[in-house]
């Protein structure tokens, strides 16, 4: 169904989209800020237990975590702007996607103003799920459609469960956690298939080796210090890890190989979009990561031939 509906968003009408000129720069800035934030805040600040008790080292560590705390709002604003611009660019041709994306931004603003509430958070989660599913209508190729469908359906399942859990506080009934587990499993399978679905046509041996190294490091962490690695997977990427740990390590390797191969072949925009999807995590725990995820998925279908929007 999704496959039949696929049609390119931009290729036919590149000049329509003046807002698109903001996209490459914003995407680059957002990916950079999010990577810094991820490293300093989401990863480093949580592994203080493994930092040796040397005053100098601790000083560096504290400074790094402080820097991470300042990077966080920068990355959050950039992510919000990226979603805004991507939605604007898509509004004329892809309203089914752009409208929920803009509504999501509105919900984020409302939550920031009024403070979190179970109802508001649930609404935010539903809007994100709707937006992610809407991307399905605009995939440019069959493989891309499969990838986007995998990510969208997986996240939507997790988000639906999380939203129901929020509503349970208001007297509703929460969906079983197995729904989220099924979503996570689907996401893992989709990401595992990334090399085939969204990877480049031509691979080099170096890509595969790099992926293998990342998989080995992941496996080493998961088997060497399972509790810390699992805590990081849960708090950083939202992964509850219902499947065997080895599968997660292999998936990390597959994603790393894909990203490196894309960068090598010059598909920087696609690599950026995939990075954003990874950084968003499974069932984003905050509006910022929700923005990263949605922006990543939108940019994936917004991909365009070189030199867009400037033909006239």
């Amino acid at each position: 169904m999704a496959l039949q509906l696929t049609r390119p968003v931009l290729r036919s009408q590149p000049r329509l989209l003046a807002a698109a000129q903001f996209l490459p720069t914003l995407m680059f800035a957002t990916v950079a800020a999010a990577l810094v934030e991820l490293t300093l805040l989401r990863l480093l600040s949580r592994v203080a237990i493994h930092i040796p008790d040397v005053p100098a080292l601790r000083g560096v560590y504290s400074a790094a975590v402080q820097a991470g705390t300042v990077t966080f709002p920068v990355a959050a604003l950039l992510a919000a702007a990226l979603v805004t611009v991507a939605a604007m660019a898509m509004l004329p041709r892809a309203p089914i996607l752009a409208i929920p994306a803009l509504a999501l931004l509105g919900a984020q603003a409302a939550l920031l103003v009024a403070g979190e509430s179970a109802l508001g958070t649930a609404a935010h989660q539903w809007l994100l799920a709707v937006a992610l599913l809407a991307v399905l209508f605009y995939s440019t190729s069959r493989r891309m459609a499969l990838f986007v469908a995998g990510v969208g359906v997986a996240q939507a399942a997790g988000l639906a469960q999380a939203a129901s859990a929020n509503l349970a506080a208001e007297g509703g009934r929460a969906l079983p956690l197995s729904v989220a587990g099924a979503g996570e499993s689907l996401l893992l399978v989709t990401l595992l298939a990334a090399p085939v679905l969204v990877g480049p046509r031509r691979w080099s041996r170096r890509d595969v080796i790099a992926g293998g190294v990342v998989a080995l490091i992941g496996a080493g962490m998961l088997f060497g210090n399972a509790s810390t690695a699992r805590t990081l997977a849960l708090w950083t990427f939202g992964l509850g890890m219902p499947l065997p740990a080895l599968l997660y390590a292999i998936t990390a390797g597959a994603m790393a190989a894909t990203l490196i191969a894309l960068l090598r072949t010059g598909a920087i925009e696609r690599a950026g979009a995939l990075t954003l999807i990874v950084l968003g995590g499974f069932v984003p725990p905050n509006s910022y990561q929700a923005g990263l995820l949605l922006a990543g998925v939108m940019l994936l279908v917004l991909e365009q031939p070189r030199g867009p929007a400037t033909t006239d």
């Binding site: 300042v70 990077t71 709002p73 959050a76 905050n286 509006s287």
Partner: peptide
């Protein structure tokens, strides 16, 4: 704007931080 928000403690995202 983000750095200012970070330094003044103005929230730019919900749920975390």
């Amino acid at each position: 704007a983000g750095a200012l928000a970070g330094l003044t403690g103005v929230r730019t995202a919900t749920s975390q931080a």
